[in-house]
Design a protein around this nucleic acid. Structure first.
Lengths: 102, 102
DNA sequence: ATTGATAGTTACCTTTTGGTAACTTGTTTC
DNA sequence: GAAACAAGTTACCAAAAGGTAACTATCAAT
């Protein structure tokens, strides 16, 4: 069931904030990523905030968290189909950034 | 001159935050808008925050502020070419929001 | 027995963002 | 002479977001 809310609000409510778009982009470019690797790639984010954002993305069904029962722990994050639907958005952002002077 | 920063960061630094994307979308859909009209359309934003965001968008050359020397005052905001370049992004967001259940 | 590895959690603090309510400005309307 | 209008500004406060540093768990290697 779809609500009638503005599509832009629907987007910003799920993917707003400073880190979610960069996090999704990092995972998307790598297929799947471990926590530590995301922490390296998305520069400047603290581990606390990273876990918060990942939880939010998981709750909104944008990423899948797969935990391996190993020691030391291993967790891999990958995109859901829903998040893969954002590919066009990422591509449009990429185009825009390249045509605009920064 | 372009820097080598990640396109996604370039985007979020200019258009991040809760209100900027909805504000740009409102102006874009109407061609140009007065302050009070934006305040009506973008629901929930206070006048203080709206002026702050509009100033930020103007500084980043995403909108043009045209002030008419009239009483009572009239100010109209419109998009720059740079912001019009975001059309594809808005379209991609629209498509995504419609295919996804909310 | 200590160190190291990974993926967090927790308590606490700072910064950023956002909100409210009152005030301003100058002309026109009542 | 007071009220209304539009587009703010200002002072002040509250909430959200984000950061730091220390801690946890479990097993393997030294």
């Amino acid at each position: 069931m779809k609500n009638e809310k503005c599509p832009v609000l629907n987007f910003t409510e799920q993917i707003g904030g400073k880190w979610k778009l960069p996090i999704l982009n990092a995972i998307r470019k790598n297929g799947s990523l471990r926590f530590g690797k995301i922490h390296q790639i998305v520069e400047g984010v603290s581990r606390k905030v990273l876990t918060d954002q990942l939880k939010g993305l998981e709750k909104d069904k944008l990423i899948i968290r797969k935990q391996f029962e190993e020691i030391p722990p291993r967790v891999e994050y990958s995109l859901t189909d829903k998040a893969n639907g954002l590919n066009e958005v990422f591509e449009a952002i990429g185009k825009w950034s390249n045509t605009v002077d920064k």
